[in-house]
């Protein structure tokens, strides 16, 4: 495949996919260990009403109001879950189920009732994203990477997703020790004087940030899959947290690249004419990686003695 074709059509989607996958997989490691894996699921559902309300207020489909709306919805959902859990004495799983289904239903209803025929905003888009459309039309080959004029035409999602990933990496790197200690032994962390509630809350906030940024670019399936599958697979490979995080980044990258390539070119190899959903394929690949890890991972059964 020549650079003239690859760089404009596939390079940016692959990069955005990889950035999104890593940004979600990193906090996912801690969520999986803390048994909060389904927070990613909940956040990616409640994002829908957030962007719909943002659209109804601003009347346009632009990135920043949508991101703000999505973040606000995620925050509202976390508060509601906590309130219902405390006020009603309901187990967290059920409280989460009540909140995210209701908010999602509200989002769908708003979307159906308002006139969005003029803009590209629908439930399918929210679920599946449109990774394939994030192409770099100004590029003509590898040389464009050095051409400032062409670089200016990069899809804005690339920059946003890249920045979000850097933000997530910085958070994990800066708070590595408190995160690690409070995840494995909350009591000990409290004795050490750490504010474990605050750490837990900021982890959820960072996850929400990653989810909202990734959602904007690639849809919510990838978000849920990447929060859980690469970290879960990584957990079956090793007993050490550092190594687990490393594996999860490898798995996330692998799933994103393989998934995109298979979605774009796989059908062509099989003789079909059109490509299939890249987001769906990336999620499928991450599932295959997890399946292999569950079958052959060295630490699949528990701590190695």
């Amino acid at each position: 495949m020549s650079g003239a074709e690859f760089v404009p059509l596939s390079l940016t989607p692959i990069l955005i996919g990889v950035f999104a996958a890593i940004a979600c997989a990193l906090p996912g490691n801690f969520l999986v260990l803390r048994r909060q894996a389904l927070i990613g699921d909940a956040i990616s559902h409640v994002v829908l009403p957030g962007i719909v309300v943002a659209f109804l207020i601003t009347g346009t489909v632009t990135a920043w109001p949508m991101m703000i709306g999505a973040a606000a919805a995620a925050l509202l959902a976390v508060l509601l879950i906590e309130a219902i859990r405390r006020l009603g004495g309901i187990e967290p799983g059920a409280a989460m189920g009540v909140v995210f289904t209701t908010m999602f239903a509200g989002g769908v209803l708003l979307l159906e009732r308002s006139d969005t025929s003029t803009v590209h905003l629908d439930v399918e888009h929210a679920l599946m994203g449109n990774l394939e459309s994030l192409i770099w039309l100004d590029a003509f080959g590898w040389g464009s990477l050095l051409d400032p004029e062409a670089l200016a035409g990069l899809p804005p999602e690339l920059l946003r997703m890249g920045l979000s990933m850097i933000g997530v990496v910085a958070f994990i790197w800066l708070f590595w020790r408190p995160l690690k200690i409070s995840t494995f032994d909350e009591g000990f962390a409290q004795v050490m004087g750490m504010r474990t509630n605050l750490i837990g809350l900021s982890l959820v906030a960072v996850s929400a940030l990653a989810a909202v940024a990734a959602f904007d670019a690639v849809g919510s399936i990838i978000v849920i899959a990447m929060f859980i599958c690469p970290p879960a697979a990584a957990r079956l490979m090793t007993d050490r947290l550092g190594a687990q995080v490393g594996w999860s980044v490898v798995f996330a990258t692998l799933s994103a690249v393989l998934g995109y390539v298979l979605a774009g070119y796989g059908p062509l190899w099989l003789g079909a004419e059109d490509s299939v959903s890249a987001a769906g394929m990336i999620a499928t690949m991450s599932g295959i990686v997890l399946g292999l890890a569950a079958l052959f991972g060295p630490a699949r059964g528990g701590a190695q003695g």
Partner: peptide, 8 residues
């Protein structure tokens, strides 16, 4: 997520 992704 994986089953849904494959469904998509």
């Amino acid at each position: 997520s994986v089953f849904f992704g494959f469904g998509v």
